[in-house]
Simulated assay, not measured.
Amino acid sequence: MIKEPFAFNLSPLTLLVLGSCLLFLSSCSSNPAFQGKGQGYVQGEWQQKAEAVDQQLLTSTLYHFKFSCDSFFVAMQTTSKVNYGADTCMNSGHWAEYAKGKYEQHTDTLVMKGFFCNADYSLKNIGGCFRAGVYEEYFKTAKIADTLLRLTSTSSVMPINLHLIKRTTCVPKPL
């Protein structure tokens, strides 16, 4: 008596389920245990100084960035000669907005993705004054000097000239 080799007789449905499971398991990966290092040239605090042209604009915003490893926090101080809404929010034409998140460098573009938050880094509630929810901005970067960085938002024509006020070194923190 000749024995046949062991053979699988699997239905097409069983093959489809097994294939899907293998595809699903191979596509999973764990998140890193530490934050990324980010870009060395931006590590620290950067402040935009008011310029003479700002006085001529109807609305202008001054930026203060903090970069720590691959994370950012930005404070945006806006001054406006136009009343866009309730004065309780506009505070006589002066207000601040904040955002935090992660950034990545893609060639000459700094991609910043995160959420609008309060000054204490807590997430901002939707429905309050100004913007809330997702913050996403793309900046073309130009390093003018070791302590001068020019960012140009892809949604604006006005460059943001940032002066380094405090250099820091990335020490990745556990996530």
Rank of each mutant, 00 (worst) to 15 (best):
M1A: 13
I2S: 14
I2H: 13
F6P: 02
L10W: 14
S11I: 03
S11E: 13
S11H: 06
P12D: 11
L13K: 13
L13M: 09
L13F: 14
T14A: 15
L16M: 13
L18E: 06
C21Y: 14
L23A: 14
L23D: 00
L23P: 00
L23E: 01
F24Q: 05
L25T: 12
L25R: 07
S27Y: 12
S30T: 10
S30G: 10
S30L: 14
N31M: 12
N31Y: 14
P32W: 03
K37H: 12
G38Q: 06
Y41R: 01
Y41M: 04
Y41I: 02
E45C: 05
E45P: 01
Q47T: 06
Q47I: 06
Q48D: 03
Q48F: 02
Q48P: 02
K49W: 05
K49Q: 11
K49L: 12
A50L: 12
A50K: 09
A52H: 05
A52W: 06
V53K: 10
D54M: 05
Q56C: 08
Q56D: 09
Q56G: 07
F65P: 00
F65S: 01
F67M: 03
S68V: 10
C69K: 01
C69N: 05
C69T: 04
S71G: 07
A75K: 15
T78F: 11
T79G: 04
S80T: 13
S80P: 04
K81G: 07
V82G: 00
A86I: 07
T88Q: 14
M90R: 02
N91S: 13
G93P: 05
H94W: 03
Y98A: 03
A99S: 13
A99G: 07
G101A: 09
K102I: 08
K102R: 13
Y103F: 15
E104F: 05
H106Q: 07
T107W: 08
T107I: 09
T109F: 07
G114Y: 06
F116V: 01
F116N: 01
C117A: 15
C117Y: 04
N118D: 08
A119Y: 10
A119W: 08
D120P: 10
D120H: 01
D120S: 06
S122G: 06
G127A: 02
C129G: 10
C129H: 13
F130C: 05
G133W: 11
V134I: 15
Y135N: 04
E136M: 02
E136P: 00
Y138N: 00
K140S: 02
K143Q: 15
K143I: 08
I144R: 09
I144H: 09
D146L: 08
D146Q: 04
T147N: 15
L148M: 14
R150A: 10
L151V: 00
L151M: 04
S156L: 01
S156P: 02
V157D: 03
I160F: 07
N161A: 02
N161H: 11
N161L: 11
K166A: 15
R167T: 13
C170N: 09
K173I: 10
K173F: 13
K173S: 14
